[in-house]
């Protein structure tokens, strides 16, 4: 049915307008290849959860087409939904069920025959094995988050949606989650995650999509995105404050700090010439001396903020 090169998830001209007239998704087009991790970044209300919910069948699309492994999500919903696992944003669990029973329920619901060995494997992978007989209401928030991931993995999905999987969890657990995601990638699972934590996308994603006001602003390989849009800066702590930047340095894009004791030079690190050597020469020629020097590179967060501001 599928050619090898066919994307595992294809979204074409997807639109969603709610009953109150609010357009949550505007002509979304996106293709995701098998086995990749894509992070969808966007501010609150950007449409990330609506997009995921539409693909999973919780929200009805107004127009457009979505296929998963070549199957249409509306016509072939049984096929597509059995391929997909969803970890929702909210910690929604049945309070009085045990961890084991809730996974058995999820596996059955998604049409899979009972398989204790698989449930055991998932629970152990998520460090939940010793909690298997605990009622869900007795678990901490972080443990409940793991249970939601375990439920989504209980039916062995090929595509996993993680809607803000590390929202509200501590740093240690967040790093555990990243490790789990990398292991799932190793097993060939395609992962689409939404997040507010830029460092999360920076750490684990292969590609980054930025969504704002229902539109995908860009989708780019993470490394390429950072090298394309990332800026590098040199900051110089001056020995003596400067009243103004001398005319001889006007050719450089320099910024003088408010208290006049720091100069910042922004440059393109991917260019053949950065201009740093000549800047240092010209500073010396202008009798401007500095005590310290440090370089910084813009993070994905800076890039994200710039993109959202530009699109607004």
């Amino acid at each position: 049915m599928n050619a090898v090169s066919e994307p595992i998830l294809s979204i074409q001209n997807l639109n969603k307008t709610f009953a109150d007239g609010f357009q949550a998704l505007k002509n979304i087009n996106l293709e995701i290849q098998k086995g990749e991790i894509i992070a969808l970044l966007g501010p609150n209300g950007a449409g990330k959860t609506t997009l995921i919910s539409t693909i999973c069948g919780i929200v009805q699309a107004t127009s457009g087409k979505v296929t998963v492994a070549g199957y249409d999500i509306t016509r072939d919903y049984r096929k597509t939904r059995s391929i997909i696992g969803l970890v929702p944003q909210e910690l929604t669990t049945e309070s009085f069920e045990t961890v084991w029973n809730t996974l058995v329920f999820s596996r059955g619901l998604f049409g899979k025959k009972a398989n204790s060995a698989h449930i055991e494997k998932v629970l152990k992978a998520l460090s939940l094995w010793d909690k298997k007989d605990n009622m869900l209401m007795t678990l901490s928030g972080g443990m409940k988050r793991r249970v939601l991931i375990a439920k989504a993995l209980s039916h062995e999905p090929a595509v996993l949606f993680l809607d803000e999987p590390t929202a509200g969890v501590d740093v240690s657990l967040r790093k555990d989650m990243w490790k789990i995601v990398q292991e799932l990638k190793g097993d060939g699972v395609t992962i689409i995650l939404t997040t507010h934590y830029i460092e999360e996308a920076e750490e684990i994603a292969d590609r980054v999509g930025v969504i704002n006001a229902g539109e995908i602003i860009l989708v780019e390989d993470k490394t390429e995105l950072m090298s394309k849009l990332g800026k590098k800066q040199v900051s110089l702590d001056l020995c003596d404050p400067l009243a103004t930047i001398p005319q001889s340095l006007a050719g450089y894009s320099l910024e003088l700090s408010e208290n006049k004791d720091q100069l910042t030079y922004t440059f393109d690190s991917s260019g053949d010439r950065t201009g740093i050597t000549s800047l240092l020469d010209d500073l010396k020629a202008a009798d401007i001396y500095f005590r310290d020097l440090n370089t910084t590179q813009s993070s994905l967060e800076d890039i994200f903020v710039n993109l959202v501001e530009e699109s607004s």
């Binding site: 999973c56 069948g57 919780i58 096929k79 929604t92 049945e94 309070s95 999820s106 619901l109 049409g111």
Partner: peptide
């Protein structure tokens, strides 16, 4: 109750008629 606590998402996203 699943609607109230939000767990209905699982039934709605499952391959069930």
């Amino acid at each position: 109750f699943p609607k109230f606590i939000g767990t209905v998402y699982e039934v709605l996203s499952a391959p069930v008629s």
